[in-house]
Amino acid sequence: GPIILDTYRVIADFEKTSKHEIGLHSGDLVEIVEKNPNGWWFCQLESKRGWVPASYLEPLDGPEEAEDADPDYEGELHVTIQAYKAEQEDEISLELGETVEVIHKLLDGWWVVRKGDETGHFPSMFLQNAGKKDKY
């Protein structure tokens, strides 16, 4: 049978920065083809197809419904595979090769990670799973 795609509403204007992305206007309705955990979703809007940031979309059915996984306060060990310098006050700066605990995997691709006493958002695409944390 036909594949039914999820429809999402655009919540803010988005200007594309590469040819594989598509621009969006607030209020547009898009159909989602693929949800990549790095926060880029492949969608179609009328005859256009391309990647858009998941953070600019809300589900058409039940915008109040939380789609994100629950936080895991124990943390899941990950290693940074690329450095990132925080640009917002709720982000965390990390060098390449640092081990962190991922405590909340958000669909927008900006996961909440903990490093020592510091907690902040970090791009999931710069993280690699390092296996289950040893509790002992």
Binding site: H20, P53, Q88, L106, W110, V112
Partner: peptide, 22 residues
């Protein structure tokens, strides 16, 4: 076919939509 997603982090949500930590 679907091309690979962009290799740069997606933009953060608009300020008023950001989830608070905690």
């Amino acid at each position: 076919s679907i091309k690979n997603p962009p290799q740069n982090p997606p933009p953060r949500p608009p300020a008023e939509m950001r989830k608070k930590i905690g």
